[in-house]
Design a protein around this nucleic acid. Sequence first.
DNA 1: TGAAGTAGCTATGGTCAATAGCTTAGGATG
DNA 2: CATCCTAAGCTATTGACCATAGCTACTTCA
Lengths: 189, 189
Amino acid sequence: MPTPERTSLEEIVRAARDLLESSGHEGLTMQAVAHRVGVRAPSLYKRVRNRGDLVALVADATLRELGARVEAAATHADDDPRLALARLVRAGRDFARERPAGFRLILAPGTDLRLDPASLEAASAPVLRVAARLAGEERVLDAARTFTAWATGFVSMELAGAFRLGGEVERAFEFGLDRLCHALAIPAS
Amino acid sequence: MPTPERTSLEEIVRAARDLLESSGHEGLTMQAVAHRVGVRAPSLYKRVRNRGDLVALVADATLRELGARVEAAATHADDDPRLALARLVRAGRDFARERPAGFRLILAPGTDLRLDPASLEAASAPVLRVAARLAGEERVLDAARTFTAWATGFVSMELAGAFRLGGEVERAFEFGLDRLCHALAIPAS
DNA sequence: TGAAGTAGCTATGGTCAATAGCTTAGGATG
DNA sequence: CATCCTAAGCTATTGACCATAGCTACTTCA
C-alpha cells in the first residue's frame, strides 16, 4: 500500500485556483502555490507534471464547477423554459463574477490548453435540455448553440466591462434574453 | 532634431504580433521579438516600457485591425441590413481564424490588460450603425449589444472548437444569424 | 526488525525580464 | 572643419521562476 498523501492533488488545485483569482495568471507560480499549501516548490512535481498541467487542472476544475452550478440552476422543475434559461445564464454570470480569471481560462483557452470534452459536455448539457422544451423549435442543437453563443458573449462582454453603468447591464440582459427566447421559440418563417 | 529611428515601434509591434501567432503567448518573449527585429533584447526597452506594455500594444493593434476589417465590411452600400450584418460577422470570423491568438487577447483580456476605449468604440460602431437600420427596432443600442454578444460568443466557440464538423459550423451560423435578425427586427410584443 | 516505497527537502542549471552603464554613430552648431 | 550631444544599441548583471537530480526521513508491511 502506498503511503497516504499528506498534500493531496485537490489541495494543490484549490490553492492554485484561489491564487489565480487573487494574483492573476502571472501570479500563479509554482512557488506561490507551494507556499500556500505549506510546502516547497519542487514537492509539487510529485503530483503535477509541470505548470501547464496545473493550469489545465485548474481550468478543468473551474469548468466542472461551472457545469455543476448550471446543472443546479436547471433542476428547478418549473415549466417555463424562459425562466429556466434565465436562471442558467444568471448562474453563469454569477460564476464569472466570482471567478473571473478562471472563467477567462475556459472562455478563451490558449492553443496549448485542451479542455476536457466530458466537462464541456456536462456544462453545456443543461442548455440543450431546456432548449429541447422550447415550444415550436425543432432544430434543438442549433437553438442551444445560438443561445449559448449569446450567453457566453454577453458574459464575456460584461466581464470585459463593455457595459458602463450597472443598470445598463440588466437592461441589456433582459432585452437580449427576451429576444433570444422569442427568436428560438418561433419556427423559421 | 532627434536622430531618425533605426528600429521603429511599429516594426517591434509587428514582430510581436507575428510571434504571438506563431509561438503563442508564452513564446512571445522579449528576446524572440528582439531577434526577429534584428536587435538584442535590452534595446527594445528604448521603445517599450516592459513586456506588459508590448502585449498591450499588440492587443490594441489587433483590435484596430479588426475594427478596420469590420468597418470595411460595413461600407458595402447595399440596403439589406441582414446581409450587412452577415458580412460584419464573417469579417470577424475570418479575422479570428487568421489571428486566433491575437483575437483571444482582445476577447478575454487579462485583469492587467486595458483595451483602449477608442479602439473598442471604432470596432463596435459599424454594428451599431447597421442595427440602427433594422426595421422596427427602437432600442438600437440593446439590439446592437445583443447581436454583438451572439457574434463574439459564436466566434469564440468556433475558435475553441465547439463545432466538430465543418458543415455544422456554417449551419449553426446561418441558423443563429437568421434567428437573431428576426428577433431584432421584430419589436417586443 | 528490516525492506521498500514515497513525501519532502536542498542544491542546481537554464530561461527570461529588466536595469545599469558604456560605446558609438550621426546630425546640429559654432 | 571641429565639437557637442542625443539617442541607439550593446554587454554585464540581478532577480524571479521553472524544472530536475539526488538525498533524507518516515511510514507501512512482511
